[in-house]
Nucleic acid binder design. Structure first.
Lengths: 118, 118
DNA sequence: CCAATCGGTTTGCTATGGAAACCTATTGGC
DNA sequence: GCCAATAGGTTTCCATAGCAAACCGATTGG
């Protein structure tokens, strides 16, 4: 037992860095893209997300799974003509999570910008 | 060979989503925090980053390694009194990469905000 | 001089991200 | 009507990333 305790200080001055509060489920590049696009429209097609974000179908499918499991999006399967089609929409939780992420990012950007001379 | 080709459309209308251009090395939560803090001061101590970002030393060490390998930060080892100490500072490339990230994030935030009723 | 602390690096496990393979319709040629 | 090709996704599998624990060398305190 000669090692350090190796845990961060509990932080008494209370003012965690904005990056600390980011949720990895939301912050991840592709998922942030999905949430953003889903926020713009009420419902989005799987294929639309795929082309907009330049993803393989498999990759998109995985990320949607993560978001659905986290309760941030709702997946609906139906038909467009006779072809099967999948639509994605934000849940209330998803909307809130995106808002939270945006808030943190704004804080972070503000800190960078104020030390920029601009 | 009955499967789909499984690659995204080349995108003719040319206007990739902001999330598409984010660099994972920079965008990652902790590394974004490191770059942001390093941007505020000219040089930062390892221990300062550790407490601000609430990380274990091992975790921080790894992420610094990634950033250094990418050429985004410079690591300097020296002494504070007789204790060894490590300082981190942004390189020009690091500063540029952070600026790029911030630009993308602003675009992304703008899209979310304009569809917010606010 | 021995134990504990500081300041960090390396090791090792787990989970995530991504492409390729696969699967089930549907549509188009002949 | 039958076979090949395409649409639209899901599942499998591998490589890497992220994280904590173990470790390591100096320094300081009792």
């Amino acid at each position: 037992m000669t090692g350090s305790v190796d845990t961060p200080a509990p932080d008494e001055t209370e003012a965690p860095h904005p990056a600390t509060g980011l949720d990895d489920v939301v912050h991840q590049r592709i998922r942030l893209g999905i949430l953003t696009i889903a926020h713009e429209a009420r419902r989005v097609e799987f294929g639309f997300l795929r082309t907009q974000l330049e993803l393989t179908a498999g990759n998109l499918s995985k990320h949607l799974g993560v978001l659905e499991t986290a309760g941030l999006v709702q997946i609906e399967k139906g038909y467009a003509g006779r072809r099967g089609r999948t639509w994605i929409s934000l849940t209330a939780a998803g909307d809130a999570a995106l808002a939270e992420e945006i808030t943190r990012l704004k804080q972070l950007i503000a800190r960078v910008d104020t030390t920029n001379g601009q």
